[in-house]
Amino acid sequence: MEWTRRRAIYATAAACTLAGCLGDDGDDESELEEPDTDIDSLREEYDVADRTGDDPVEIAVDPDGARFDPDGLEIDASTTLRWAWEGSSEDLYPIAIPDECTWEGTDGERTAGDEYDRVFWAEGGYVYGSRDGDGEEFTGALFVHDDGEDE
């Protein structure tokens, strides 16, 4: 069999495809782990601002580059969060959320002046993210407390 350029390219592509399908057995510790979402873990990683008692609460998106301001929040259940874009970013999406929460985030590019509101009622920790124009991910955290009105 003669190895032409075309056959060499096909063989290389097939080998790369096969290598990608083989993967690993899942024991690789470098795989992404779901972040801790308890309040103590969130406080260690984020500068958590206590906004309990406030409604609505605003989060600036991309105010001076790829970040949220504040990047961490504590709020009461049933508080409205308003993300307000000061720059541009792609998608706002959940990374880790309580099981009871059905939030799926937003799709598409957002630019300065855009806003997105969401009421969070499920207690617990949330980690969410977005990507800047270069595809770099930045994250924020939220901890929702029971507001005590049901007691």
Rank of each mutant, 00 (worst) to 15 (best):
P98T: 03
E136V: 15
A11P: 00
R51P: 00
S89L: 10
D146E: 05
A96G: 02
D69T: 15
W121M: 10
D69R: 15
I75C: 01
E136D: 07
D40E: 10
C16A: 12
G23V: 03
P35H: 05
P56N: 01
T12F: 11
A112V: 15
E137K: 13
I39D: 00
V119E: 04
V119C: 05
P35E: 01
G53K: 07
E44F: 11
A96Q: 07
G133Q: 14
F68N: 01
P70A: 01
S30T: 09
R82F: 02
A141E: 00
G26E: 00
G140W: 10
A60P: 03
D69F: 12
E2N: 13
T80V: 04
V61T: 11
L73A: 01
E151S: 03
R67A: 15
I95Q: 02
I95H: 00
I97H: 00
D132Q: 09
W121E: 13
P98H: 04
T102M: 05
F120N: 00
Y46L: 10
E104T: 01
R67Q: 15
A19D: 00
C16W: 09
C16I: 15
G26V: 04
S41C: 04
V61W: 08
V127K: 13
S41V: 09
S89P: 03
D27T: 14
R43Y: 06
D134T: 15
W121V: 15
G87K: 03
W103A: 04
G125S: 09
C21H: 10
E151C: 01
D50L: 01
R131S: 08
T4G: 08
W3H: 11
D40G: 03
P70E: 01
G108S: 12
E74F: 09
E151N: 03
G53F: 09
Y10T: 12
D27R: 14
Y93T: 11
A96M: 05
T106F: 04
G133W: 11
G129S: 06
P35Y: 08
D50T: 04
E86F: 14
E58L: 13
R131C: 11
S88V: 07
T111N: 04
D69K: 14
R82K: 05
L142C: 01
G23H: 00
T4M: 12
